[in-house]
C-alpha cells in the first residue's frame, strides 16, 4: 500500500496546529484594508494592484436593494486556484465589507448579506493564481415609504 506522503504531512501539521493552538485557528485579518475610508485605498492596501475587469467573476446583487440594511450578495467564478474573494462597497464609510480566504478544497461560490449606506458601485474582487480580477455593479438603495 502506498502512503500519500503529502496527505500524511498535512495531517501531522494539522494535528500539531491543533495541539499548539487549541481550537482557535484565526489567521491575520487585513485590518488596515478594513480601516480604509476610500474604496481605491482599501483595494490598494488589500491587493497591492488594481484588479483587472473580468467577466469570469460573477457578482449577483440586486439592482435595487429592497433595504440597505440587508443586501444579499453572491460571488462566484470559474477561475482556477482562487485564493480569496472580496466585496467592496465604494460609498460605504469603510468600503471593504468582507474578504473570504479560500483553500485548495474550496468551491469559489460565496454568499453573504451586507449593509449599504447609500446607492453605490459594488465590486467583487477575486484573487486567483496571484492576480486580481474584478467585476462591478451599480446598486440603488431606495427610501421606503413604510419601512424607511
Amino acid at each position: 500500500m502506498k502512503i500519500d506522503r503529502r496527505f500524511f504531512i498535512r495531517k501531522v501539521l494539522a494535528v500539531g496546529v491543533l495541539l499548539a493552538l487549541p481550537r482557535i485557528l484565526f489567521a491575520a485579518r487585513p485590518d488596515k484594508a478594513f480601516a480604509a475610508t476610500d474604496g481605491d485605498e482599501a483595494m490598494a492596501t488589500l491587493f497591492g494592484e488594481t484588479p483587472v475587469a473580468s467577466d469570469r467573476v460573477v457578482l449577483k446583487i440586486p439592482e435595487i436593494a429592497e433595504n440597505g440594511a440587508v443586501v444579499p450578495v453572491t460571488i462566484s467564478t470559474d477561475l482556477e486556484n482562487v485564493e480569496s474573494i472580496s466585496v467592496v462597497v465604494a460609498k460605504n464609510p469603510t468600503p471593504l465589507a468582507a474578504s473570504f480566504a479560500l483553500g485548495p478544497r474550496s468551491v469559489a461560490n460565496v454568499s453573504v448579506r451586507i449593509k449599504m449606506g447609500e446607492s453605490s458601485q459594488v465590486l467583487a474582487v477575486v484573487k486567483a493564481g496571484g492576480k486580481h480580477y474584478s467585476t462591478s455593479k451599480d446598486v440603488k438603495v431606495t427610501i421606503g415609504g413604510c419601512g424607511g
Binding site: 435595487i64 431606495t142 421606503g144 415609504g145
Partner: peptide, 8 residues
C-alpha cells in the same frame, strides 16, 4: 401604487 419605493 407605491409609497415612495414601497408597493402597498
Amino acid at each position: 401604487l407605491s409609497l415612495r419605493a414601497d408597493p402597498i
